[in-house]
């Protein structure tokens, strides 16, 4: 396994990312090229902007070096872009990782993907349309502090290890997830489940053994 650093962005990349934005028609994407360029050069941060996960993967895929394309090579891209796929309800859902070429892990997906505690949403809904939404959200954040991941959360790196391992397991075995709630391979749909699985720093017995066997290869 080798670890590569970030590839410097080219001017074409901004147009590609603008087109990958969710719900942006091709002829309207040029409006976002400037801001995507600013983002790529580190002059802007865009949080909560959803992208089509598949389109993101293709952007990264097309920029992989030839040596990264081969049966035994696993490529994993970590991004702060928020990626979405279409859910069974036909609506876009924020995702943590995508088992594609390359594998993509979204740190924004860790924040926005798994749902926050129910009470958080109840407080927000109760004030919808009253002009007090921001206040209610701030209160809910205090009330539920620590029970969900936020942007710039110091726990982010630890929490991302399990979803990265899910990608490794998918590559090695075809099965990325575990049904056991305490295992780091558990596919959490709630923030509380995510934090419990990832901050517990453990794999279930079956997957711990499988990882050990992988490490010995």
């Amino acid at each position: 396994m080798s670890v590569a650093g970030p590839v410097p962005p080219s001017p074409d990349d901004a147009a590609s990312f603008a087109r990958a934005r969710l719900g942006v028609e091709a002829d309207a994407s040029s409006r976002f090229v400037g801001v995507e360029g600013s983002r790529l050069s580190g002059r802007a941060t865009l949080r909560g902007v959803p992208y089509d996960a598949g389109a993101l993967a293709v952007i990264y895929w097309r920029r992989l070096p030839e040596a990264a394309l081969g049966a035994g090579v696993m490529n994993l891209v970590v991004t702060d872009r928020l990626m979405t796929t279409q859910g069974e309800d036909g609506r876009p859902h924020a995702r943590v990782n995508l088992m594609a070429e390359p594998y993509v892990l979204s740190t924004s997906g860790l924040v926005e993907g798994p749902a926050r505690p129910r009470g958080y949403y109840i407080a927000r809904r109760a004030t919808a349309g009253t002009g007090l939404e921001a206040l209610a959200e701030a209160d809910a954040k205090v009330e539920h502090a620590g029970s969900f991941l936020e942007y710039d959360d110091p726990r982010m790196s630890r929490v991302a290890i399990g979803p990265a391992l899910q990608c490794v397991f998918h590559f090695a075995t075809g099965e990325p997830f575990c049904d056991e709630a305490g295992c780091m391979l558990y596919n959490a749909h709630w923030q509380e489940e995510l934090l419990a699985a990832q901050l517990g720093d453990r794999l279930c017995e079956r997957h711990a053994k499988a990882l050990e066997e992988m490490s010995c290869r």
Binding site: V58, R95, G109, P163
Partner: peptide, 10 residues
């Protein structure tokens, strides 16, 4: 043509 699996977590 790029084939992109839809399997995702989260």
């Amino acid at each position: 043509l790029f084939l992109v699996p839809s399997l995702a977590g989260g």
